[in-house]
């Protein structure tokens, strides 16, 4: 598979701790890649290495197959988690300055900025100072500054934090549109909901190690056990008695009166058919569905596994 960014055996050591420990990652082009992990896991360290703000102590990175070099910076757009702009500078002047630093010519930058300012309906702000804008307005400018040079790879660190719901949706739509247009996006977050909504692939970083990687579908498939949720009408005690030794009743929720929903974990050699055969004589089955874990569950499960592994 030809990936836009390959990270091979990257480690980063600080004087008192290891921020990244032999991390391998492969980012496929034209996808939204979720970089997940709790605070302090090493996400920001990894992002800074990709942005060449710092260098790895071990390992190597490849951008489109070439060893990552300074000139690749112009192909990368970065929205840091903690973000800001020069408060006293005018919006247009500032955007133009940052675009030129990214290597665009003045005319290119003007053309691109004009387009983005129109798209976000903020053309009238060109001559306003940043500190005259509201927080939400500043965020829009910040996003434009990140994408104005049409980077092949866009790195967004907690992009939705600080945005109000309307602007967050605007940004989400824009991210999806950029993917349509061929941009690859790395989205670093600990907000699992946004990951399920828009990411194609994910990697989970925990205690400076990568502990999970793959497409969301594959990961969910792999992590979903032989678990089903059954909705039925009837006595839930009778339902429980009907289950045999290879089926474990995990929980039961009452919907109304005698309507219930139970989650059952089957032994590996049993199928939903076996389950239905067992319970149909006792209750009136209304529905049966395979349980797929949420990213949040997968995250927590995987972390727990690691912690148990550490303790053994």
């Amino acid at each position: 598979m030809n990936s836009i960014l390959d990270i091979k055996g990257v480690s980063k050591f600080y004087t008192s701790h290891t921020a990244l420990d032999q991390v391998d990652l492969s980012i496929s082009p034209n996808k939204i890649f979720g970089l997940l992990g709790p605070n302090g896991a090493g996400k920001t360290s990894l992002i800074r290495i990709i942005n060449q703000i710092t260098g790895p102590d071990e390992g190597a990175l490849f951008f489109n197959g070439e060893p990552l070099q300074i000139h690749h910076q112009k192909n990368i757009g970065y929205l840091p988690e903690e973000r800001g702009l020069y408060k006293k500078m005018k919006v247009g002047e500032q955007a133009l300055y940052l675009a030129q630093l990214k290597g665009m010519s003045k005319s290119e930058a003007m053309a691109s900025l004009k387009e983005w300012f129109e798209k976000f309906e903020i053309s009238g702000w060109w001559n306003k100072r940043i500190d005259e804008l509201s927080k939400g307005m500043q965020q829009k400018v910040q996003f434009i500054v990140t994408v104005m040079h049409r980077p092949q790879l866009l790195i967004l660190d907690e992009p939705f934090s600080g945005f109000d719901p309307i602007n967050a949706k605007l940004i989400r739509d824009e991210i999806l549109k950029l993917r349509e247009e061929g941009t690859t996006v790395i989205l670093s977050t600990h907000n699992m909901e946004s990951v399920e909504e828009i990411c194609d692939d994910i990697a989970l970083i925990y205690q400076s190690k990568k502990i999970l990687e793959g497409s969301i579908r594959d990961v969910k498939e792999a992590r979903s056990g032989n678990e089903f949720s059954v909705t039925y009408q009837g006595d839930h005690m009778a339902f429980a008695k009907a289950l045999w030794i290879d089926a474990e009743l995990k929980e039961t929720k009452t919907i109304i009166n005698n309507k219930h929903c139970s989650t059952i974990k089957l032994a590996d050699n049993k199928t939903p058919n076996d389950l239905l055969n067992a319970i149909i004589p006792h209750v009136n089955v209304l529905g049966l569905e395979k349980v797929t874990p949420s990213m949040n569950d997968i995250f927590i499960d995987r972390v727990n596994e690691i912690n148990q592994g550490n303790h053994e």
Binding site: N51, I53, Y78, P80, E82, R83, G84, Y86, L98, T146
Partner: peptide, 12 residues
């Protein structure tokens, strides 16, 4: 104001 992190992705 954290702009430094943006600038040093363009310059050293």
């Amino acid at each position: 104001n954290r702009i430094v992190e943006i600038i040093i992705t363009s310059v050293k």
